[in-house]
């Protein structure tokens, strides 16, 4: 029931083999650029999509598949729905007294497109970069070593602890029986207390596991800092490869701000 950790799809495409540091930086830059796109710069969105599709092709993924996967954040659009009626300005009247604000619709569609594009970019990163490489990239990009280590530990132990939580849930399900003619389930408070107890149980086991992990680390010479191998310098080719999508992004955004609004 817990999700598997690997969105990563192993492969040998150019994007798979690209320097992970470059990929992380470009991902953030692209998402930032997408966010900066002025709402009404409509030609920018298909232009940005061609960039995404291009990167998908570089990863040997189908652009349509990425488009589908990018829809994962769409339910959140519910939060932006009120824009359709609350933004002041000219409106289109539909029948039955409903008027849709033009500015509101524009804003709504812009958010939809931005979100959809951003998710695809993020997915391209996680699908072409193994978790180990991602962690390495973060560390090389000067994310504080402690945080990087915490992320690595968390992912390492999430499967294990996730399985324990799964078994706790099964054990509870196994004893969640119904007797003839009686309402089952106990009170809400009781159920919450049981769930709380399960969480407490899981906490103690996790805490004690962390002590064993610590002891194992001490036994192997750990003294407080996670040592890392020095990352190799960024090659010119990698930097150049990363510059291309950034250039494309820059051109699109410039055009968006100067001409397309």
């Amino acid at each position: 029931m817990y999700r598997s950790f690997e969105r990563y799809q192993p492969g040998q495409s150019p994007l798979h083999r690209a320097d992970p540091r470059v990929k992380v930086v470009v991902t953030f830059a692209l998402i930032g650029g997408i966010a900066l796109t002025p709402t009404h710069a409509w030609p920018a969105y298909p232009a940005l999509w061609t960039l995404v599709a291009g990167l998908a092709a570089l990863a040997r993924f189908s652009a349509w598949r990425m488009a589908r996967l990018g829809a994962v954040a769409l339910p959140f659009m519910l939060a932006a729905l009120p824009l359709l009626i609350t933004v002041p300005g000219p409106a289109w009247t539909l029948g039955g007294g409903i008027a849709i604000s033009q500015a509101g619709l524009a804003r709504f569609v812009a958010i939809l497109l931005k979100s959809w594009l951003s998710v695809q970019v993020a997915l391209l990163l996680t699908m072409t970069t193994s978790f180990a490489d991602l962690v390495w990239a973060l560390g090389s990009l000067r994310v504080p070593g402690t945080l990087v280590a915490l992320i690595a530990f968390m992912v390492r132990y999430s499967t294990t602890l996730g399985e324990e939580a799964e078994r706790l849930l099964r054990a509870r399900a196994a004893r969640s029986a119904h007797a003839e003619g009686r309402p089952a389930g106990g009170t809400l408070f009781w159920r919450a207390r049981v769930a709380g107890g399960m969480v407490g149980n899981l906490f103690l086991r996790s805490y004690e596991r962390s002590e064993r992990v610590y002891a194992a680390m001490l036994a192997r010479g750990y003294a407080g800092e996670m040592r890392r191998l020095t990352p190799p310098p960024l090659s010119w080719r990698a930097a150049l490869a990363g510059a291309v999508p950034l250039l494309w992004l820059g051109i699109v955004e410039l055009a968006a701000m100067l001409w397309w609004q």
Partner: peptide, 21 residues
């Protein structure tokens, strides 16, 4: 450990019957 999730033994053994109402 996966089956004992209440603080006290009594509560763990009582869980099943309690759930049945």
């Amino acid at each position: 450990d996966d089956q004992l999730f209440s603080p006290r033994v009594f509560e763990d053994v009582a869980f099943g019957p309690l759930h049945m109402g």
